[in-house]
C-alpha cells in the first residue's frame, strides 16, 4: 500500500518530530514519563537553563532559527506545543 494523502504524510512527519524530541528530552533531562500536553516548566520536567538547551537542539535538528519573539510557552512549553511550532516553521 502506498501512502499518497498529503494529510497522512504530515501526520507521519509530526510523529517523527515528536519521537525525536521526546527521546532528546528523556536522554538529556532523565525523565521518562511525561504527557504530550504537560507543561515542562510547571511540572519541573525541564528547568530554565534546560529550555535553552532544548531550543539549541531544535535549531540544530530542524535547521531553523527561533526568533526571540518566538521564545514563548505557547511554542515551547509542552511536547504538543513544540511539535505544532516546528511543523508550522517547516511548512
Amino acid at each position: 500500500m502506498t501512502v499518497s494523502s498529503p494529510f497522512v504524510l504530515e501526520a507521519a512527519s509530526m510523529d517523527s518530530i515528536r519521537l525525536k524530541i521526546r527521546s532528546f528530552i528523556s536522554d538529556t533531562f532523565f525523565v521518562d514519563d511525561f504527557e504530550d500536553n504537560a507543561s515542562f516548566l510547571k511540572n519541573g520536567t525541564i528547568d530554565s537553563t534546560g529550555m535553552m538547551e532544548l531550543v539549541n537542539f531544535i535549531e540544530q535538528s530542524f535547521d531553523f532559527k527561533v526568533a526571540d519573539s518566538e521564545l514563548v510557552p505557547e511554542n515551547l512549553d509542552s511536547l504538543d506545543n513544540l511539535v505544532q511550532f516546528i511543523s508550522r516553521k517547516k511548512a
Binding site: 529550555m51 514563548v72 510557552p73 512549553d77
Partner: peptide, 15 residues
C-alpha cells in the same frame, strides 16, 4: 543563568 530566559518563559516558571 535564569536571567537569560525570556520574560514569557519566566512567567510560566514563576507562575
Amino acid at each position: 543563568s535564569l536571567s537569560e530566559l525570556p520574560a514569557e518563559m519566566l512567567q510560566t516558571f514563576y507562575g
